[in-house]
């Protein structure tokens, strides 16, 4: 382990949130590197200071005010008995729609690219010319009846 790796994981090491193998690697690096050992001490010192912060007390009578506010709410709600049924119904409808959609997609014939075929009626005249403005060929289809 190098110093960069150590410093990236120093918080997890101080919190004992690493695996056993990683903890050992960190411990080993700490023994060899004075800078990283100091970094770990600073991390632990900060953690200790935060853990020893005094537990603040709420103002006098807060507990009673809290109770009064709760009592003013009346009875707590009860769980809607329809809720589990509603969830099951939504799941069933969604599942049915999915199955139906899959079945329909299997039944449908493969799409045919329209551009591959041009249908002409027996009474239509097809004339091919060159675009006078330098474009590609132009096919004109017109009714055979004058």
């Amino acid at each position: 382990m190098n110093c960069r790796g150590f410093r990236n994981k120093v918080a997890q090491y101080a919190d004992q949130e690493l695996s056993g193998r990683e903890m050992l690697a960190m411990q080993h690096h700490c023994r060899c590197c004075e800078g990283c050992a100091a970094e770990l001490r600073r991390e632990q010192e900060l953690k200790n200071m935060l853990a020893s912060m005094k537990v603040p007390e709420p103002s006098f009578g807060f507990e009673d005010r809290l109770c009064a506010a709760i009592n003013a709410e009346g009875q707590p709600r009860r769980e809607s008995a329809w809720r589990p049924w509603r969830t099951a119904a939504v799941a069933a409808v969604a599942g049915a729609a999915l199955v139906l959609g899959l079945l329909r997609s299997f039944d449908r014939p493969a799409p045919v690219a329209k551009s591959d075929f041009i249908d002409f009626g027996a009474d239509q005249v097809v004339q091919g010319t060159q675009d006078p403005f330098g474009g590609g060929p132009v096919i004109t289809v017109s009714s055979g009846n004058p």
Partner: peptide
């Protein structure tokens, strides 16, 4: 459907409010 017990809630609240505060 069960209606929650307000007395149980109050005892939870009294026991925890300092920590939550």
């Amino acid at each position: 459907a069960q209606r929650p017990d307000p007395a149980a809630f109050e005892s939870y609240m009294r026991a925890s409010h300092r920590q939550v505060y």
